[in-house]
Every structure is written in C-alpha cells, then in structure tokens.
C-alpha cells in the first residue's frame, strides 16, 4: 500500500508539472499556429481595428469576400468567421474579444439554425476557445454556463485537446493561404453537391441560446454598434419559416435580417457550392456583391 501511494503521488506530481508546462507550451503553439481558427481568434482578440467585423461559423468564413465588401461599402472589413463554431455562445465570446480593445461601426452576424435549435449538446462546439479560459472573463462565463469549466480550470492541457493537432499542424503548414481580410477561399470541389433533403423548421427552441442572442444584441447596443443578421445561401430547399424564431428576435430589437437561404438564392446553381452548406470561392465571389448591394441600400436608407 505504501508503495502504491508513493507511486500515485509521484505520478500525480509529474502529471501536474507536465500539465502546467504543456499548457504554457500549447498556448505558445496556439498563438503562433497558422491553422484555420487560431490566428483569426488571436486577431479578433488583439489586433482587429476594422470598421466592419463579420462573425459567424465556417459559412461566414468562406462566404464573405472582405475586399468586395470593403470596396462596395467604402469601409475596412474583417471577416472573423471561425470554422466549426456553429452556435451563438462562440459568437458571443468572439464579439466580446473584439470589444475588449476595439469598437467596430458595424457587426454582421451570420446565423444558422443551430443558433436557436435545441440540440443534444448546446455547447458542443465551444471547446475551440478553451485556451482563453483564465484569460477572458467571457470564455470563463460560457464554460461555467456549459457546466464543464472546472475540467478546463483543473487541467491546462485539456484546454488544447480540441485543436491540439490542428494547432501543431498549423506550425508546419499554413491553412491561411489565400486569406484576405479574414476571408478564406474554398477550392473548387471534385464534384458539385446533389440536392438532399430539405431544411425543416426545428420544433424545439433552446431558450438559453436565445438568451445569449439577446446578450449579443445588448452588447452591440451598449457600444452603439450597428448590428446586422444574415443567412447566406445553402444548397438545400428551406421551409419559409425556417428562421422565424431568429427573425422575431431581430424584429423585436430592430436588427435587419438578410435571409438568402429561405429565399432560395443559388438554389439552381450547384456549381457554386462545395457541399450543401458551403459556397466555394466562385460562389462567394458572386454572393458577396449581392449582400454588399443589399446592405449598402439598407445602410443608406
């Protein structure tokens, strides 16, 4: 028994040292990685100074060409869409990272059904900003809400689990090639998607997500930021009322809502899509002017 206790204590001590040292090393890796999301998150947290900031998930990342928007709206634009961050909690965190040091004039939030739909795990995609635990009160608050804050607080290495390989890989190979103002073009796919199924209106709404949506809107109001909601095209036929829950929230807060998915924009053009939910570069180059035109018209009015 004595031997076992001695062994366990030694292993725990070494593990503690490895965890803390590894945590520091991985933070350095995260901050220097050129993978898909870490450099964008770092830019949003430390450097962004553009007039307009777009937030959202991969559909934001790949669909809005910053230079087209900048030329059309005559203001500087940064596309802060982060791959695989499809829920309002991550957008709320990203917005607050920006507001710590900069107040943009316009914030555009690309929305998805996941931003209000009740899912098995509401917080499934928040782990990519776990490295910011202890460094951002907003990261801490979201993880506390998710109920797994203590795991990350206790174990520093665990904070990097979701993106460790991606971060390390990003030191070797840059995933930011072709990136311009945060926009990352998707290459042409080997073949274009086929129409599968329909985007049905979810029946169950996650009230916690709506609470965070309201918090997001309130933060913009506090800082006098013009907030825009939009849903870019997808290659699925959508129910007319697919985004009604979000549209009601927008209406109640006087936030414009540009919905190109329910409208069926590009629904006859599979050649613009990489898959059923992502436009590749050609689609993005054609879609961004449409959005820029509508947005400009709205801003002038």
């Amino acid at each position: 028994m004595k031997n076992l206790l001695k062994s366990f204590l030694f292993i725990l001590a070494v593990l503690f040292i490895l965890d803390r040292a590894g945590g520091r090393l991985m933070w350095w890796v995260n901050q220097h990685s050129q993978d898909m999301s870490a450099p964008k998150l770092k830019y949003l947290a430390d450097e962004v100074n553009e007039d307009m900031v777009l937030l959202g998930t991969s559909r934001c990342n790949f669909h809005y060409v910053s230079s087209i928007l900048a030329d059309s709206l005559t203001m500087s634009v940064y596309n802060g869409g982060i791959d695989a961050s499809d829920c309002i909690f991550t957008h709320y965190f990203a917005l607050n990272q920006v507001l710590r040091h900069h107040t943009p004039k316009v914030v555009c939030l690309e929305l998805m059904v996941n931003d209000f739909k009740l899912t098995k795990n509401s917080f499934a995609t928040i782990s990519f900003f776990a490295p910011y635990i202890g460094r951002s009160e907003y990261a801490d608050s979201v993880f506390r809400e998710a109920g797994n804050y203590w795991k990350y607080k206790l174990c520093h290495l665990y904070r990097y689990n979701a993106k460790a390989v991606s971060n390390i890989g990003g030191l070797l190979v840059s995933r930011q090639q072709g990136a311009e103002g945060g926009y990352i073009p998707l290459p042409k796919p080997p073949f274009f998607p086929k129409k599968v199924g329909e985007a049905k209106t979810p029946t169950k709404v996650d009230t916690l997500k709506l609470k965070y949506m309201q918090k997001f809107i309130n933060r913009c109001k506090e800082k006098n930021i013009k907030l825009i909601f939009m849903v870019s095209p997808a290659y699925t036929v959508a129910d007319d009322d697919l985004y009604d829950v979000l549209k009601n929230v927008a209406r109640a807060n006087d936030v414009p809502f540009f919905d190109y998915h329910s409208r069926g924009l590009f629904i006859e053009n599979p050649e613009y899509f990489k898959d059923s939910v992502h436009l590749w570069d050609r689609g993005a180059q054609l879609y961004t002017p449409v959005f820029a035109h509508d947005l400009k018209k709205y801003l002038i009015e």
Binding site: F10, I11, L15, L18, L157, Y158
Partner: peptide, 13 residues
C-alpha cells in the same frame, strides 16, 4: 512512473 504520467498527458492532449 514517468511513462505513466506522460501517457496520461498524451491522452489528455
């Protein structure tokens, strides 16, 4: 013992 600690850290990461 160091091996055990490293394996645990490796799995966590």
């Amino acid at each position: 013992h160091f091996y055990i600690a490293v394996m645990v850290a490796f799995i966590i990461l």
